[in-house]
Design a protein around this nucleic acid. Sequence first.
DNA 1: TATCAATATGTTATTTTGACATAATAAGGA
DNA 2: TCCTTATTATGTCAAAATAACATATTGATA
Lengths: 249, 249
Amino acid sequence: MPQEKTNHSNASPYLSELTLDCVILSFHEDCLKVLLLRWKGTQEWSLPGGPIRRNEAVDAAANRILKERTGLDDIFLQQFHVFGEVERYNREGIKYKLKHLIDPDKWYERAVSVGYYALVDHAKAMPTPDPFTEQCAWWDVQQIPALLFDHNRIIQVARKALRTQLSWQPIGYNLLPEKFTLPELQRLYEAILGKGLDPRNFQRKMLSLGILERLAERRRGGAFKSPYLYRFKKEEYELKLKESNLFFS
Amino acid sequence: MPQEKTNHSNASPYLSELTLDCVILSFHEDCLKVLLLRWKGTQEWSLPGGPIRRNEAVDAAANRILKERTGLDDIFLQQFHVFGEVERYNREGIKYKLKHLIDPDKWYERAVSVGYYALVDHAKAMPTPDPFTEQCAWWDVQQIPALLFDHNRIIQVARKALRTQLSWQPIGYNLLPEKFTLPELQRLYEAILGKGLDPRNFQRKMLSLGILERLAERRRGGAFKSPYLYRFKKEEYELKLKESNLFFS
DNA sequence: TATCAATATGTTATTTTGACATAATAAGGA
DNA sequence: TCCTTATTATGTCAAAATAACATATTGATA
C-alpha cells in the first residue's frame, strides 16, 4: 500500500534499494563449501549477489546470479531471509576498503538484501568472478574468513535454514552427482547437520522415503568393498519437496 | 554488491521499491480470521502493509504496522516470503480503482513486498484503518473476497507457511487468551490445518511437548462438563520456538 | 430430575526410532 | 598369492511415538 510519492523515473536499470545475496553451497571432499568472491585489488571476500534489474523478478535475479557465477541453470534456489537492518550495508569501513572500486559518494544509502541459498554439484559449477571481483572460489564453511557486509551472518542464517529444510524436505538432488553412494549421501547430511549419524539408521530412514533407486552398478576404485550406486527418483523427490507437512500426519 | 550508480538523495522518508504486507491472523468463533482494510470510497479490500522508512529496519516496520493496525506490541511476527514479480504491484486495474486516492502518475513503478504473518489475540486487537482506508475488519479466511494487488496469493502462501511452522514449532501463544482450554487449542490447530484431529491423540501430543501448564481452574458457563484451563509455560515455549530441528533428533 | 452437549480419559496394535556389532569385499602391499 | 586394512552392507531388539478407537462424566437447562 503506497504512501503518495514522486514517481522518480530513475535512469538506472537496477533497483537501488534492494539487492540479493546467494549462499551457493556444494559438497566436496566430505565438506560443505560455499562460493565466495574476492574483490579486485583487495583480500576482501564476500558472497555472490548483486542488484536486481527493474524489469526482472527477484527470483529471476537470483537465478541469473547463480548462472553468472557458476554457469548452472535450473537449480533449486531457496529464499530464506530478508536482511533489512538499516546499517547492514552502508558502513564506513566497507566504503573505505572498496573506495578504489566504488566512489564512496555513489554508494547506496541503504540496501535491503534478500538471501537465497542454492545447492549445486561441485563438479559441474564453474566459479566465475563478477566485474568487481577477480577471484571466485569455494571455501570450506568451517574456514570462512571475515567477510564484507553482514555476509558471515547471512551464511549462518542460511545454514540454519538448510538444517531446518533438511528436517522436512529431501536434500541432495542438485548437490550430488547423478549417481552416488549411500555413504556419500550420509556424509552430506552429516556435513549439513554438523554431526555424525548411524549408517544403519540412516539407510533405513533414507530408503523409507521412497525417493532413492538402487542401481545394479557399484562404484569401483577404492581399497574397500564396492558400494552400490543410487539415483534419486526425480518424480518422487519433487513430490516430497512439495508436501512438507509432518505434524499429525 | 553494488553496481555503480548515482546516489539520488531521495526526498521521501520511505523506501520507494520495497514494501511489506502483513497477514495478521486471529482465531474467533472457531475460525481463522485475517485482518483486512477497505480503501476509502471503494469496496476494495487489501492486506495491511505499507512502505518502510529509510531509517527503519524492515522487521521494525512490520512491527510498526502491526502496532498501528491492532494496537498490539511484542507479537511473534514471521517473515515468510518475498513477493518480487515485476508486475505484481503496478497494474492498470488497480491504478484505476484507486485513482481518487493516489495520482496514477505518482504510483510506484514497482514494489517488491516482504510478507509477514502474525498471530494475535482476537480480543486484544483493536482494528484500525490507515490513512488510505476507512474500514479495518476481520474476515474469515474461508470467505475472503477478491483483494487488491496479489494479496489473495499472499494469504495463501502465508497459510501454507503457517501450516509448515505448525509442524515443527508451537503455535498459539499470541493467538489465544492467556488461559484457554485444550478443546480451544485443538480447534485452533484444526482451523490452521484445515482438518479434524482426534482429541485423545491431540491431548497426548500437546502435553508431551511440555509447554502447557494445567491450572486448577475450570471454565464455567457452558451447558457441559467444565473444561480445565491451561496456560503456556513461556520459557519452555520460547525454547521450542528456537530449537526446530527434528530430523535424526 | 431428566436430558443434552461437550469434555475427559485409556487401550491396543502398528510404526518409527535409537542403540548397537559383525561379516563381506576390493585394493594394495608383503 | 595371501594378508592387511579401510570401507561398506546389513539385522535385531527395546523403547517411544503414532493411529485408531468408545465411553463415562459433568454442568447447565428444561
